[in-house]
């Protein structure tokens, strides 16, 4: 009887550890993919990140 309880205890512990690891992996994946941030407030869009055709300007050689 004691053996069965011990086995059940170990199995639960293993199962719990496996679940925790899976959760941790999922969390990492989520944070990895959330790189591109979508603006949410009006302050975030106060400055429009737009570019002109001549952002890069250099002198002519002649």
């Amino acid at each position: 009887m004691k053996k069965i309880i011990f086995i059940l205890l170990v199995a639960s512990l293993l199962l719990f550890t496996a679940c925790s690891n899976k959760e941790a992996t999922t969390d990492t994946t989520t944070s990895d993919t959330s790189g591109s941030t979508e603006p949410t407030s009006l302050e975030d869009v106060n400055d429009l990140d737009v570019v002109s055709d001549n952002e890069v300007e250099v002198d002519s050689l002649i």
């Binding site: 949410t40 429009l48 737009v50 570019v51």
Partner: peptide
């Protein structure tokens, strides 16, 4: 294509900003 890329980028930036206005 460089100009087209700039047009696309600007338009998408504008759309992002407009989404914030719409949600607000």
């Amino acid at each position: 294509n460089i100009s087209k890329l700039a047009r696309l980028h600007n338009r998408m930036q504008y759309a992002r900003a407009l989404r914030v206005i719409k949600n607000d």
